[in-house]
Amino acid sequence: MINVIVSYKVKPEFVAENKLNIENFLSSFKEMDTSKFNYSVFVDNDGVTFTHVSNYQDENIQKEVLNNLIFLEFQKKRDESGLNNSHKVQILEYIGSTNNIL
Rank of each mutant, 00 (worst) to 15 (best):
S35A: 09
S86H: 03
F50Q: 07
K36F: 13
L102C: 13
E80L: 15
I22L: 11
S28K: 03
T51H: 08
I22D: 01
S7I: 00
F74A: 12
H87E: 15
E64T: 08
F74Y: 15
N38K: 15
L26W: 10
S81V: 00
T49V: 05
D58E: 07
T34Q: 11
N67C: 10
Q57T: 08
I61S: 05
Y56H: 15
D44N: 14
L83H: 01
V15P: 02
V89E: 15
V48Q: 05
N68W: 10
V43L: 09
Y94W: 07
T49R: 12
G96Q: 02
V10S: 01
G82K: 00
E23C: 05
E73I: 03
N45K: 13
V48H: 02
P12D: 03
S40I: 12
F37K: 12
H87S: 09
N85M: 04
G47M: 06
L26T: 05
H87C: 00
K19N: 06
F37P: 05
V6C: 11
N99C: 04
E73P: 01
N99S: 11
E80P: 02
D58F: 12
G47N: 08
I91D: 12
K19I: 06
L92C: 14
S54N: 09
N99M: 06
Y8R: 02
E23A: 11
I95K: 04
L69E: 12
F29P: 04
H52Q: 11
S81R: 00
N3G: 10
L102H: 07
V15D: 05
A16H: 06
D58W: 11
Y56A: 02
G82H: 00
S97Q: 10
N55F: 09
L92H: 10
S40R: 12
N68M: 13
F42Q: 12
F37W: 11
K30D: 15
V15H: 01
Y94N: 03
Q90H: 06
V43N: 05
D33R: 03
F29W: 05
I101G: 07
N99K: 09
N38S: 12
E93H: 02
V53Q: 09
D33Y: 04
S27T: 10
T51Y: 09
E59V: 08
G47F: 03
Q90P: 00
E23S: 07
N55Y: 14
Y39Q: 06
E64I: 07
V15S: 02
M1A: 13
F74D: 08
P12M: 06
I22M: 07
K19A: 02
V6A: 10
L92W: 13
M32V: 04
S35Y: 13
I101Y: 09
L83Q: 02
V15T: 06
K36I: 12
K11G: 08
L83S: 01
